[in-house]
């Protein structure tokens, strides 16, 4: 091989062949092979510069130009074809890579929080927005905090409302029957009104277990002590709470009742969510669902907590967390919450 003409002819021929092959390539893999074939270090085109040594010095620039022309023509063709193929592939993506998007998803294995924990948190959140503060305290209590300080002296018939588990024969160490001992403990700890606290926790009563009674259950108790608190404030607070938890269309009512630690005392009811308060089967016909107990803190209780009942008044209200969960999730048997059948927990 010699002579500038020969070199120019060969470069042109290679480029022509290459362009033809590139135009015919129909995927990116084939283009890759052609790049090696036509531009690789062992390709015919790359052998051309080795022949420059036999050329006269004045012929070499022309030979170099011929070589470069061929190389850049091939490179441009490769890039152009690659772009064409890429566009074609993307245009076809919807068909070529389609999957069955209706195939069921594969959820990760996760657990969940117990429904009572979640309800408790929801209750706390509502109350915290109103400036209440969560307090917790002992479940194994003394007679003083559970009964005596709450205006329930020994031998009082009202103690029968709260059948009690005891740890000793003198019956002064017991399982708290309600969260109300924390009324006294909170007043003692915080000392100076305004006191706005909420106490969630486990409580215990010596009741035979059935669908609506448990020996161990959870209560939430709210206590407010300040100057000038009224029954109206109690009603408003419960209404705010009920509407936050169940919806703005709900109403509440309070009915006179009796607890030794409040005076006056009430039960509070929530308007039925099924019939809106007209009366239906869900609410037993009277339009109201019983939720919990409440009242104005008895002056003796304030005094036992170290608060001057002539200056301050207070209100307290409480209910079972399970009761809230039952109303929320249509659960008809309390025992389900503590049995922990995972099929039940996973529904809620």
């Amino acid at each position: 091989m010699s002579g500038i003409e020969e070199i120019e002819r060969r470069a042109r021929a290679i480029a022509e062949r290459a362009l033809e092959a590139i135009a015919a390539a129909d995927d990116e893999e084939a283009l890759g092979r052609l790049r090696v074939e036509f531009l690789g270090s062992k390709s015919e085109l790359m052998r051309i510069p080795k022949a420059f040594a036999g050329l006269a010095a004045e012929e070499r620039p022309a030979a170099g130009r011929a070589f470069n022309r061929a190389r850049s023509a091939i490179e441009e063709a490769l890039a152009r074809r690659a772009e064409e193929l890429r566009r074609a592939r993307l245009a076809d993506l919807g068909a070529s890579e389609a999957i069955d998007v209706t195939f069921p998803g594969r959820p990760p294995q996760v657990g969940r929080l117990h429904v009572l924990t979640r309800i408790q948190r929801e209750v706390e959140t509502v109350m915290e927005r109103m400036g209440y503060h969560v307090e917790d305290g002992p479940e194994v209590e003394t007679d003083w905090y559970n009964f005596e300080a709450l205006n329930l002296p020994r031998g009082h018939a009202a103690r029968d409302m709260q059948d009690t588990f005891f740890f000793n024969e003198t019956e002064d160490l017991l399982l708290r029957t309600h969260t109300s001992p924390m009324q006294i403990r909170s007043m003692e700890r915080l000392r100076r009104p305004p006191i706005f606290v909420i106490v969630p926790g486990r409580t215990y009563r010596r009741d035979a277990t059935d669908a609506s009674h448990l020996a161990q259950f959870m209560q939430v108790e709210a206590l407010a002590v300040d100057e000038g608190l009224t029954v109206g404030d109690l009603k408003g607070t419960i209404l705010y709470f009920a509407q936050s938890l169940w919806g703005a269309e709900r109403r509440i009512r309070i009915r006179p009742s009796f607890f030794p630690y409040t005076e006056p005392s009430f039960e509070f009811d929530l308007s039925c969510g099924v019939c809106g308060g007209v009366g239906c089967r869900a609410c037993g016909g009277d339009g109201w669902l019983e939720v919990g107990g409440c009242g104005m803190v008895h002056p003796n209780v304030l005094r036992n907590g170290g608060i001057d009942p002539d200056r301050y008044t207070g209100f307290a209200w409480g209910f079972g967390i399970e009761r809230i969960a039952m109303l929320r999730h249509d659960v008809d048997d309390l025992r389900l919450f503590y049995e922990n059948d995972l099929r039940f927990l996973e529904q809620l």
Binding site: V110, G111, L175, N340
Partner: peptide, 15 residues
């Protein structure tokens, strides 16, 4: 975190 790792929370009687 435990729920995310696949464990379900239970609440059981203390007695």
């Amino acid at each position: 975190a435990l729920a995310g790792a696949g464990y379900t929370e239970v609440v059981t009687p203390a007695m």
